[in-house]
Amino acid sequence: MTESGQQPDADTTPHPPALPARAPTSGDPAWVRILITTIAVGSLIVLVVIPVLSVFVEALSRGVTRYAQNLTDPDNLSAIALTAVVAPCAVILNTLFGVAAAWAIARFQFPGRTLLVTFIDLPFAISPVVAGLMFVLLFGSSGWFGPWLNAHGLRLLFTPLALVIATTFVTLPFVARELIPVMEAIGPDEELAALSLGANGRQIFWRITLPNVKWGLLYGLILCNARAMGEFGAVYVVGGRIAGETNTMPLQVEMLFQGFDSPAAFAVATVLTMLGLVSLGLKTWVESQQDDGQKQEEPAEPGITESVIPPKTA
């Protein structure tokens, strides 16, 4: 990813990054080519295409009116609304965190820096169910803070706030992970230049850093949001699954499925699937934007001396 110090090895000639435009001259015999392509395409169709299509087929299997009824059921509507609140909350919190963490890690040297990066990754490794359990241990009635909360007439577990906390934990690394390598690759030169020209921290951030990392940030936001909307295990544990109150869309899908109301479960699932497809489309679009950006910047690679700093007026 990062083009750090390229040392010309003895056996590898410096090689321009292989462009997809170069005709794939694979020397593989035709039967190998056909076999592998068939397996690859076939497994993608069986694993991805048919399941996605059948979500819609199943949801509409009892007719459009039934589908509309299922979608507008008060409990299902409230699940959609709850997801529409919980996911953005988690995304906003993790964006603030991601920007702060990337600034600290990519712009400064301090002891324990690599350890911090590993620590940020931890929520990825932890099973969501275990994450939910940790918050039950903290906020449950017999947990660390539970008795204190009870004494003050507060309850956290089985409330939407608990859903936000659990979702934030599970999606914590996304933005930071995308931003750190992007900011490291860009380097601090432009920000230092701005500083030497008298810009203050806020101006540097809004005029230099943010425009530079915008695609990386957007990419992280999309991934974070997609995961937050679909989060299941952690919110299952901390939410208490109260229909109409703490059921997000995925939890509502499960509840309907367990209640043998498959068409309704699929109706809610169509909303989630469409959101997933939109995320995927946006992600692909951002990737193409990033590629364009890189291609434009590449010619200027040898010495990034001339950086465009917008003339500022106080």
Binding site: V48, V52, E231, L251, V253, A269, L272
Partner: peptide
């Protein structure tokens, strides 16, 4: 990338 974007509950259901 769809399995990354599709909620696991939907995958399980379908």
């Amino acid at each position: 990338d769809l399995p990354f974007a599709l909620p696991t509950a939907v995958a399980g259901l379908v």
